[in-house]
């Protein structure tokens, strides 16, 4: 054996030995999926159905121990109206906690737009988008907020130092400082209910079926079917956060 063949054979042997057995295994996608029954939660909002009753906000506050009187909430409803002059206005008094019972809109600064000036309106429920690339998680300096393997973005109350970077980093304004627990708080998608097989509190409370929560890895889930086959939109797509709250009937005015 001369030097050339020795080196050639050595390269073949080393490469072969370095190759793990797993790399040569043939994987059937269906088998992999059945062995790992993964869950990837997603949320679907049908803005056509929302009537602005605010039962979702009320239920969320009760379920998740958010002070009712404090002006913080994990989910909220925005009302968008168009006036006769074509102006677009939006409001969300107390996050829509008590519903929208008055047709007029109070703008910041004390001006009131009366009901007669408004020609159309609609409601957009909002919550944490549980982004696939959450900007709020990237900016946390202590690892107190994270995305779970099931796609829920959570805050570790014990670990949070309350610096507020994530509140600033969230493009959707979905985070706030919890006045009682003294840590950053946000929608958990009611993880504690989902693991027990129940829907999120806001989903259960919505009388009009405007809110749904579902598993994107289940092709028969109504949410997955809607995401795949309906015309859906997401909020602030340009931020690259890949939100997982999908909207049916999202108007171009909403951002």
């Amino acid at each position: 054996m001369n030097r050339r063949t020795f080196l050639k054979d050595a390269i073949v042997v080393i490469t072969g030995a370095a190759l793990p057995a797993a790399a040569l295994e043939w994987l059937d996608p269906r088998q992999v999926l059945a062995e790992n029954p993964q869950i990837r939660w997603a949320f679907l909002v049908d803005t056509h159905k929302c009537a602005g009753c605010g039962f979702c906000v009320k239920a969320c506050k009760a379920e998740n121990d958010i002070p009712y009187e404090a002006s913080v909430t994990r989910t909220w409803i925005e009302r968008y109206v168009v006036t006769q002059s074509g102006e677009l206005l939006a409001d969300s008094p107390q996050g829509g906690r008590d519903g929208f019972t008055s047709g007029s809109i109070d703008l910041p600064g004390g001006t009131r737009v009366s009901e007669e000036e408004i020609i159309r309106g609609f409601f957009v429920p909002k919550l944490c988008n549980h982004c696939a690339s959450p900007p709020c998680v990237q900016v946390c300096p202590v690892g107190a907020t994270y995305a779970t393997p099931q796609g829920v973005v959570l805050v570790d109350r014990q670990w949070c130092i309350g610096c507020g970077y994530c509140i600033m980093g969230c493009p959707y304004g979905a985070r706030f400082f919890h006045p009682v627990h003294k840590s950053v708080d946000k929608c958990t998608l009611c993880t504690h209910r989902l693991t027990r097989g129940d829907a999120s509190a806001c989903v259960e409370a919505c009388p009009f079926g405007a809110r749904q929560v579902g598993n994107l890895h289940d092709p028969n889930d109504p949410v997955t079917r809607a995401v795949v086959s309906e015309r859906i939109g997401v909020l602030r797509d340009s931020y690259g956060s890949r939100p997982r709250v999908y909207y049916l009937g999202l108007s171009k005015e909403v951002h």
Binding site: H48, C50, V81, F122
Partner: peptide
């Protein structure tokens, strides 16, 4: 609400 307002 005297104007068209979604589900209302």
């Amino acid at each position: 609400l005297s104007y068209p307002a979604g589900g209302r």
